[in-house]
Design a protein around this nucleic acid. Sequence first.
DNA 1: CAATAGAATAGAATGATTCTAATATATATT
DNA 2: AATATATATTAGAATCATTCTATTCTATTG
Lengths: 153, 153
Amino acid sequence: MKYIPTKIRNRPYTDALRRLKEGKLRPTKQRLALSKLLFEGEDRHLTAESLYEEACSFGIKVSLATVYNTLNQFTEAGLLREVVVAPGRSYFDTNTHHHHHFYCKEDDNLKDISEDQISLTILPDPPADMLIDRVSVVVHLKRNHKSDDDNNY
Amino acid sequence: MKYIPTKIRNRPYTDALRRLKEGKLRPTKQRLALSKLLFEGEDRHLTAESLYEEACSFGIKVSLATVYNTLNQFTEAGLLREVVVAPGRSYFDTNTHHHHHFYCKEDDNLKDISEDQISLTILPDPPADMLIDRVSVVVHLKRNHKSDDDNNY
DNA sequence: CAATAGAATAGAATGATTCTAATATATATT
DNA sequence: AATATATATTAGAATCATTCTATTCTATTG
């Protein structure tokens, strides 16, 4: 079982509530519960489906549609960031700081790369009347099947 | 109407055929026709649906499933590159050279950035037993609604 | 030119996500 | 505190992109 510091255990909804207020979202039972799952503990990468299952397993009464709504609203409000790595694989990232990702398709695994570990210079100006919103760097990985290759020679 | 050089007009399938051979794919009627649409002329970004519609409008008898198959096979064979920019928006890019993209969600528009216009240094090593396959940089743009904002002040 | 391996096809199936219309709940108003 | 209202939640239907399936067709091989 995961260790949760006393401080957090004793005021279980203050942080979740603060975030909802931050996003001007009504603190409903479902949003509070999902917010708690999302933001309590370490940064996470999750899909709507995975959060839905997690919520169910904790006995939270919520529908998949509400999980989708909530994730989209949280993203809209800047509480989450959406990461698109492969077709039909959309993740929500609780780390909203500017950062990047390693992604391995084979094991469908995402890993953060902090901003200061990538240096990036973009020379071309954005097209007229456009501003740069954000820059997403995805470093696609493949397994190093060293032995397989070696055995062919 | 688009100008097509005489050279290409006169030998319409030589290039398409060459590419199919390159990918060890049988030169069927559909593949040849799609290859022609894809690679004749400038570099393009397209979806399965858009290529399907284009083919239909040219009177090419092909099914959507075959367009999907063909795009996937071409990508597999290295004749195309898949670009993922937003959930449920997967593009195929006829430019297979290493390069990056501007993407504007509002008008769902992709624009190339050539490799030499972005300088990138990735400090962290990939996780153990992993190699870097490729690095995808997407510069997300938003419209600069300058006048709208100004009018509020 | 017949045999066969591979490809194309229509339509069904899937999977992720969004929509709909009914019901329930949170906040504002009295 | 009771009521009004605006907003959320819900189950299930609908949608969209994509893949699968089983059949028919076609390019290559002998």
